[in-house]
Design a protein around this nucleic acid. Structure first.
Length: 433
RNA sequence: GGUGGGGUGGCCGAGUGGUUGAAGGCGCAGCUCUCGAAAAGCUGUAUAUCCGAAAGGAUAUCUAGAGUUCAAAUCUCUAUCCCACCGCCA
């Protein structure tokens, strides 16, 4: 969300951002609605002034019949204008929720993912002297991954992790968590069933509604319909962590606040039916450790922190010796709320390409405005914080890279050194039983 | 699922229709006192929107929404959250 005053004063900049981000919101309409809303609000205010004056007079003496009559007339007029105001206000809010963050001028301009710019590559891509297997085949043979049973029980895109697959998966979480704590991030396990406001706050609503599961109680009402609660399953712990400070005024001295959230994540993946159907690349639930930062309203600082959280994720990939690249995401692909965004993609041999495993974003104060998160400066001024987030680790998707990059001719897997301590006996190689 | 009790400013807490944007306390800021500090005293201390160059003014906000009334923190209804006890349960 943007400041309406900023929008009024910088119409062209906002329009340009809408265009660059490939959005449809009509800024002229917003301004018209805003103007109308202001006008109606003014009318209501002056009527209420009259009402209050009348009530003030009634404090001293019992109101006369004449005054009561006037009061009634004013009341009716207020109701009439308020009815109109509500309609206008609804439209206003709807449009305001959709106003995009102004993207950083350094971000590449572009329409979609084909315009993203590769800015870094790390690691040596292994050349295998034998025909490689993909993670599905490797996982099945080693009895650590089973998507057939996953589909049988969990449905399309269900999966079971088993044996060392589980230990590897949990080890990854623990490895990333330890790294985060070492870097001064406070660990959180947040709620994964959350209320609507938090979804709006992060910007997952109204934009990404399709991908979010809503809770429906299995019990039926008398008319046979289901009870849909206004609660949702998170797709990441980001909204839960952000909303932790909703409606709060933080102290400047406590910033930046660095948190990491560990949670199961749920994604409906509606709209991507035909995409990435093989394996565990695109699935309905996974575990993730997410980095979240609240910092001062200062792009110099938030951009520095953006580099920092990106570097932490790079370090995690380097520690595991997974080749990766970094994409500078273009304006059209970054999402409405973002100021700057980098994706980290890990090398996945079976895809013969990189696949997204991390996503690092600076949102400026766009989310903080939605969630009303401020901080007070020494001089007393209150400003909205900047917020940032990035994946620390998300599994099992990352297992694709780990299994496939470390496979041996016999189908066994060499465990990355940093993960060995999470396996019993600190085994170096996962072999077929 | 059942029953009962609650939700007031940064915090605690008073307040059952009109003198309450809200007593009192705490906290915080400034000043006085002091070599300095503590203590004490004094003063100040919400947010949002609109109008205004500013000073300032208007409106709204006592969980939220709806209603009663000339007038609502206060009465009614609904929702919601918290707490307690019972039932069920990992």
């Amino acid at each position: 969300m943007l400041d309406i005053k900023f929008i009024r004063a910088n119409v062209d900049i906002v329009k340009q951002a809408v265009k660059n981000k490939n959005l449809k919101i009509d800024v002229n309409e917003l301004l018209k609605v805003d103007e109308n809303r202001k006008k109606l609000q003014g009318e209501i205010d002056s009527l209420r002034t009259q009402k209050n004056e009348l009530a003030e007079a009634g404090k001293k003496n019992r109101p006369t019949d004449e005054q009561i009559k006037r009061g009634k007339a004013i009341k009716e007029k207020i109701i009439e204008i308020e009815t109109e105001f509500k309609l206008v206000d609804e439209k206003y809010k709807e449009l305001m929720w959709q106003t995009p963050q102004i993207p950083c001028s350094d971000a590449p301009l572009g329409q979609d993912e084909t315009d993203n710019v590769e800015v870094k590559k790390w690691g040596k891509i292994k050349k295998f002297a034998f025909p490689i297997k993909d993670h599905l085949e490797l996982g099945k043979n080693l009895d650590i991954l089973d998507v057939e049973k996953g589909a049988k029980v969990g449905g399309y895109r269900g999966y079971y992790l088993k044996n060392e697959g589980v230990l590897l998966h949990l080890g990854l979480m623990m490895f990333a968590m330890e790294k985060m704590v070492k870097n001064g991030f406070k660990p959180f396990i947040p709620p994964t069933i959350i209320r609507e406001f938090a979804m709006y706050g992060s910007g997952h609503f109204p934009f990404g509604k399709d991908d979010i599961y809503q809770i429906i109680n299995s019990g039926k009402l008398a008319d046979g319909s289901n009870v849909a609660e206004n609660k949702y399953l998170v797709g990441t712990s980001e909204p839960s962590i952000l909303a932790y400070h909703a409606d709060e005024i933080l102290n400047e001295t406590e910033l930046p606040k660095k948190y990491c959230g560990f949670s199961q994540c749920y994604r409906s993946e509606i709209g991507s039916y035909g995409k990435d159907t093989r394996g565990i690349y695109r699935i309905h639930e996974f575990m993730k450790i997410e980095q979240v930062i609240f910092c001062k309203n200062d792009y110099k600082e938030s951009e520095k922190l953006h580099q920092e959280i990106t570097a932490i994720s790079e370090e995690i990939l380097k520690d595991m010796e997974i080749p990766y690249r970094i994409l500078d995401i273009c304006t059209g692909d970054m999402g409405a709320g973002k100021y700057r965004m980098f994706d980290l993609e890990s090398w996945m041999p079976s895809r013969n390409s990189y696949g997204e495993t991390h996503s690092s974003s600076n949102l400026g104060d766009w989310q903080a405005r939605r969630l009303n998160i401020k901080y007070q400066q020494k001089d007393g001024q209150k400003l909205f914080v900047h917020t940032l987030n990035n994946t620390a680790i998300a599994s099992p998707r990352i297992l694709i890279a780990i299994l496939e990059n470390n496979q041996q001719a016999d189908g066994s897997i060499v465990v990355p050194k940093v993960l060995r301590k999470y396996l019993p006996g600190k085994i170096k190689i996962i072999r077929k039983k």
